[in-house]
Design a protein around this nucleic acid. Structure first.
Lengths: 196, 196
DNA sequence: CTATAATTATGGCGATCGGTCTACTACCGA
DNA sequence: TCGGTAGTAGACCGATCGCCATAATTATAG
């Protein structure tokens, strides 16, 4: 049943890499096919739903890859704060290696297709939920009380950082965003929280 | 010298609105021309550089519009924290009115064209710098010491929030992001900052 | 009124878009 | 040997892509 050439998997990986650099609408099917060395027939056999289905698969694939990264960082972390810091470092280094070109593999697709393509919207939702769960799992590992909204904030920060990083051509925002998150977790007597 | 029909301006505004919903590569010239009721000849007269030049103009236009929003919020604010809060509210309400469809007008273009199109990269850089200046100006108005990196963090947060808002179909992240920012400003005895 | 520039208007260019179609090959159990 | 299924291969489709050439129109200046 499973093919030995893994055409389907190769298509997903190649598409994900290309989307990451130039966005969903910025990459044509022909280019993906050429880079994957797969003919159109094979593509539409594996993805009857066409480019949209490939895009959804790329979202889920990239989402799972990042989830693995989170798990790995969590497993290797010596302290609670170590987890997100290591994770950010991995992201930042990979980003640097790509010549500051590769954005978030999810956003690069979703920003163009949500809400136009419902299936993509759902997929992104699920991926974000997956990431949130991994973050909460990490917190549990270190007995840190973490609300879902706290985890969501980390996602928000990293997504924003990835945009800034690309624009500024620097990996600093990615590293910085985690520090902001850790800061935001501390219930601190900050100024000006309740105006009037 | 200045045309009475303002074809050029209309093209920019329409293009900006369309890009915002479906991204730079997701909107064709023909559609922009139809929506602007402008013929191709006029377009290439005003934008000899083609779509790329229009995109750059849209970036700068949208950037200036948002800068005005920041200024307005700053002028109307009763306290320092009031400024970004009002600003976020305006963004969030506009976003809701668009049916949770309109993302950040800059990102919707830049994510697809940076770093492919150098002129766009520069334009986005300048817009972000402009926003940063406005934020710093607001802080000065209320005698709040604010570093450039602090201002950059707000931009990072709002950009991330705009992504989350679109995915979650909610304006909450936009409002929340400002609170995170205000929290992050307080130099607080937070836990776990220096591991090991 | 005329000359000149500014702007609008149209049609069509080659290339590429995503998608469909049919043919072909490889491997399977019967 | 056969039929059947999984997968590969690539020609071909209409539509749209961004762009360009050129003519018609309008505004401005002398």
């Amino acid at each position: 049943m499973s093919s030995q050439s893994d055409t389907r998997g190769r298509l997903i990986r190649v598409a994900s890499a290309l989307f990451r650099q130039r966005g969903y609408d910025g990459v044509g099917l022909t280019e993906i096919l050429e880079a994957s060395k797969a003919p159109k027939g094979s593509f539409y056999y594996h993805f009857p739903g066409g480019k949209e289905e490939l895009g959804e698969a790329a979202i889920r694939y990239a989402g799972a890859e990042v989830a693995k990264l989170i798990e790995g960082s969590s497993a290797a972390a010596k302290s609670f704060a170590d987890g997100p810091r290591m994770f950010a470092k991995v992201l930042a280094d990979g980003f640097e290696q790509s010549g500051f070109r590769e954005g978030c593999p999810i956003t690069s697709i979703a920003l163009a297709t949500v809400p136009k393509i419902g299936a993509h919207a759902s997929a992104v939702q699920e991926v974000f939920d997956l990431w949130r769960d991994r973050i909460l799992g990490h917190a549990r590992r270190f007995d840190v009380a973490l609300a879902e909204t706290d985890a969501d904030r980390l996602l928000l920060l990293v997504e924003g950082a990835w945009i800034m990083a690309r624009v500024r051509q620097s990996k600093q925002p990615l590293l910085d965003s985690v520090e902001v998150w850790l800061l935001s977790l501390a219930p601190a007597p900050n100024r000006d929280r309740n105006p009037a």
